[in-house]
């Protein structure tokens, strides 16, 4: 498997102290497909024994795939604070 965090080291991030996406793990426990684990292009969702998934917002590329794919409404999805998050330089 590709370790995407190695690639994200080259990107410019400005981290907010607060996560911009909130995950309701109670709903995640009911999830059967856990597609976010594989669909997220930045590997922000990791498998977790208890909750099923564990979300880290730091590497988020703000694409919205998790929001589009989640069918349980477990995500409180929003954009990060102005100026925070990823800042592309060569895209």
């Amino acid at each position: 498997m590709v370790d995407i965090s190695q690639r994200l080291k080259f990107s410019r991030y400005r981290l907010d102290r607060q996560a911009h996406i909130e995950v309701d793990y109670v709903k995640c426990r009911r999830c059967t497909h856990r597609a976010c684990l594989t669909a997220c292009p930045a590997q922000c969702y990791l498998a977790h024994a208890e909750n099923g998934v564990l979300f880290n917002y730091e590497g988020c590329l703000e694409c919205g795939t998790c929001y589009v794919i989640c069918d349980l409404g477990a995500l409180k999805w929003n954009y990060p604070k102005g100026g925070c998050g990823v800042n592309y330089r060569f895209a």
């Binding site: 690639r7 080259f10 990107s11 694409c63 589009v68 990823v86 592309y88």
Partner: peptide
Amino acid sequence: RFLEYSAHL
């Protein structure tokens, strides 16, 4: 040489 990785819908 790898420069940047990006994603968008």
